[in-house]
Each structure stands twice: as structure tokens, then as C-alpha cells.
């Protein structure tokens, strides 16, 4: 959850940079996104947790996990927002300007309400991914579900049963979050503003 929040906080400025900023910033933001999207989360986590101490920065496993998950998620989320904003046609913006709105107002009142709705389904998806990826924090020794499970396995010697239970817990969590956001999406739905294809 924290990871997602951090991701959101970083993603919005980045997507703005990519769309509205002058060329060099735009390039920088794109590079940030591209690089983080190309490196496995696990490697990012290891860089943060095992790599940074070389520079005297020592992060607790949980902090490293939050930052790692957050950074990665920010790259994906910025892409989601960029896609959503760009998919609102130029004409909507121009029509708003023609009514006498200034650029900020046009963005705030016309483009944003539409873009946010479009962003909900892919964003839901991203939430699910982040949820599942928290399991990777296992590698850093964060005591999350999977690690808890391993402690129990040592005690009970029933690995399959325990792992299936963990899987079921994750399944319930993802279904629950998908469901909640799906309802949000329906509540906010306006005829004609389509839903994007779900991606991983």
C-alpha cells in the first residue's frame, strides 16, 4: 500500500513532465520510466538493500522494499496516466479553450475528469501487481506473508498446504481490490468514455 502510494506520488509529476515539460525534461522522464521498467524489481530491491550500504546508506528491509516497489510502480503508473491524458482528444482541450478557459482550467475541469476515469482500470491492475510483488520483499527478509508461511512450514512440514493457503489469501486480496475498484469504476462511468484493455 505504501509502495503504491509512493508510486502514485512520483508517477503524477513524471507523467506531467513527459507531456508538458520542455524537451530535456521530457527525455529525462522517459528515460527514468524506461530504465525502471526494464530492470527486474528484484534487482532494484537488491541494489537498494545490498548496494546502497556501499555509500553508507543503510535501509531497513521494509523501507528498501517500499522504496523499490514504489519506484517501479511509479514508472508503470506514469505510463498509465500519460496514456490516459493523451487519449483525451486534443479537440476537448481546444473546445475548452474556445469557451474562454485558460490552460490550467481546461486541464483541471475538462481533461482530468475524463483521464482519471480512463486510468481506473489499468490502475486497478497496477494495484494487483504491486500487491503480488510485495511477495518479492521476501528476498530482503521483510516479514510478509510468504516468509510467515515459511516459518509455519518449518513447524508443520506441510509445504503444499501452507503455500496453497498463502496463494488463497493473495487471491482473496486481489479479487477484493479488483472488485472494489471495479465498483468505483462503474459508479464513475459515463457513457462513451471507454475502458482500456487490461494489461499485466
Amino acid at each position: 500500500m505504501l509502495g503504491l502510494g509512493l508510486g502514485l506520488a512520483v508517477a503524477i509529476p513524471i507523467s506531467f513532465l513527459q507531456i508538458f515539460a520542455p524537451q530535456p525534461f521530457r527525455l529525462l522522464a522517459s528515460a527514468y520510466e524506461r530504465v525502471l521498467r526494464s530492470i527486474p524489481l528484484l534487482v532494484t530491491l537488491f541494489l537498494l538493500f545490498y548496494g546502497l550500504p556501499s555509500f553508507g546508506i543503510r535501509l531497513a528491509p521494509f523501507t528498501a522494499a517500499v522504496i523499490g516497489v514504489g519506484l517501479r510502480s511509479s514508472a508503470y503508473q506514469s505510463q498509465i496516466f500519460r496514456g490516459a491524458i493523451l487519449s483525451i482528444s486534443e479537440n476537448q482541450f481546444r473546445a475548452a479553450l474556445a469557451m474562454g478557459m485558460n490552460k490550467i482550467k481546461a486541464f483541471r475541469h475538462i481533461v482530468m475528469p475524463q483521464a482519471l476515469r480512463l486510468a481506473i482500470p489499468p490502475w486497478t491492475n497496477e494495484l494487483t501487481i504491486v500487491l503480488k510483488d510485495t511477495s518479492m520483499a521476501f528476498a530482503l527478509g521483510v516479514v510478509e506473508l510468504v516468509r510467515q508461511g515459511r516459518y509455519i512450514i518449518v513447524a508443520t512440514r506441510e509445504p503444499l498446504l501452507i503455500y496453497l493457503t498463502i496463494a488463497a489469501i493473495y487471491l482473496i486480496l486481489t479479487l477484493l481490490s479488483n472488485n472494489t475498484l471495479g465498483r468505483l469504476e462503474k459508479r464513475l462511468r459515463i457513457p462513451g468514455i471507454g475502458v482500456e484493455e487490461r494489461a499485466r
Binding site: 510483488d133 509445504p159 486481489t174
Partner: peptide, 18 residues
């Protein structure tokens, strides 16, 4: 799709031997 890959890997590797 609703469960983490890590858990799936564990199921195949640790869960099946018994």
C-alpha cells in the same frame, strides 16, 4: 493471475516433493 508468482514457484518446488 490472482496469486504471486513467487508462491507459485514455491508450490512447484517445495510443495510437490512430499
Amino acid at each position: 493471475r490472482g496469486t504471486p508468482l513467487l508462491v507459485q514457484i514455491f508450490i512447484f518446488y517445495f510443495g510437490l516433493p512430499p
